[in-house]
Design a protein around this nucleic acid. Structure first.
Lengths: 234, 234
DNA sequence: AGGAGTTTGTGAACGTGAGAACAAAACCGG
DNA sequence: CCGGTTTTGTTCTCACGTTCACAAACTCCT
């Protein structure tokens, strides 16, 4: 059986496409909320801020969920994308580092609504331990291992200062966490098989500053490259 | 005079390279802090988490700042990159939306140290107006125009809920802001010439979830694609 | 001074992603 | 039932980004 069904787990979806799927998911949810049942690739593309050819190509990696001459069923497509990404499941998550950013993350509603459940907040600072943030009590960092084991956590979020980040990552990896979202401004070294994604607030601003400087220098009015969002760099 | 000097403002630096320059800048700062005066492309590459060929090619777009057989002078290279990005200048920034995330951003030290100066915090909620966050008093959102004009602000940060984001962006664009960093989970429509970069917390987690799901499904142990950071976002 | 050893900068090959264009497949009206 | 219209899914081409590999350029040692 070498035929390739739409549920074949070995299909490869390009990384650039994977990064856009959550955007489509959100756009579909917005459409559904305004009562729209069906949409064309053009409609969805403009809601997601991409061009329609790219959207159709992206969706074609998942399968053939549209109807020619008609478009896509909003709810059906939404479910298919959600299933593909994995947000139909429940993902227990731990957050380490409950400073200002950790607070914001703990309170961020966008996690809960997409299947991410914060099972623990951890911090090394005894001052913070015991406080309740977003309905969860902050635990000492040393309880990481126990918590991860008890809740079968696969995803960890690091919101510590840069100096602590590598240590936290090492502990996470040692206990079996295989996906890390890193907000600390530091480069993490992790073994093969562990995924790390980095979100760096100051880097984004610096990229804007670069373009801003070029505009100010009157470099070339031509290629003003609007809306360069993304992990532009895949 | 069509010769192209190293200070030629019209050189084009690939977007992917621009996104990495701030990473190199941070790595160089770390090296300088540990007292290292000179480093090879190999050293710097490993500190920045990229491979050395890519690093050299990236730096070659800026000019020829290394010495063959020796390496790069840390301080000199650091200055050149900082100048190229524009972080040797002072960039006044306004933040709109002082919720949990806005608080975190206002307190984030990484902005100040890279030339970004928060000149105003704005929020539409009367409850928040007047409070002092990170040493700055929160102003009513309606003072946006006046503030931007007074401080000659070119960069705005949006940390509002999704529903308000487009309105805020419109007001920012109307008053002359040409670079926007958007934390709201919404697609912003802006005119040509305005740069928007998006940081979306839940999208990053969803990308991790996708890979995590594939690992769990035992899709293929082979291409486990470690450390898929980026951007990407660029 | 000259050769051995390093390390940069870059040309060339390769892989991935984006966009245009079009054939295939559905619906609709007569 | 059939031609016209719409919209998807896919193919093809081009541009961009990454990596390899190596000549050029520098230092150091004898």
């Amino acid at each position: 059986m070498t035929a390739r069904s739409s549920t074949d787990a070995n299909r490869v979806i390009p990384e650039a496409t994977v990064a856009r799927l959550p955007v489509y998911l959100r756009a579909l949810t917005a459409l559904a909320d305004s009562g729209i049942r069906t949409c064309s690739s053009e409609d969805l593309a403009s809601a997601a801020g991409v061009n329609s050819a790219k959207l159709r190509k992206d969706l074609s990696y998942l399968g053939s969920y549209g109807t020619r001459g008609v478009g896509y069923d909003v709810d059906y497509l939404r479910y298919q994308i959600a299933r593909e990404i994995g947000v139909t499941q429940d993902w227990p998550v731990v957050i380490v580092g409950i400073g200002n950013l950790g607070h914001a993350l703990a309170n961020f509603s966008g996690f809960r609504s997409r299947g991410f459940r914060i099972v623990a907040l951890l911090d090394a600072d005894p001052e913070l331990v015991g406080q309740t943030v977003a309905g969860v009590q902050v635990q000492p960092f040393d309880e990481l291992e126990e918590t991860v084991r008890n809740h079968d956590v696969a995803i960890g979020v690091i919101a510590t200062p840069a100096v602590a980040a590598q240590d936290v990552a090492d502990r996470m990896v040692a206990i079996g966490i295989t996906s890390i979202l890193n907000f600390a401004p530091a480069v993490l070294a992790v073994p093969e098989g562990v995924d790390v994604r980095k979100v760096d607030l100051s880097i984004e601003l610096q990229i804007l500053a670069y373009h801003e400087q070029r505009k100010a220098n009157g470099a070339e009015p031509g290629p003003a490259a609007a809306a360069t969002a993304d992990g532009g760099a895949a």
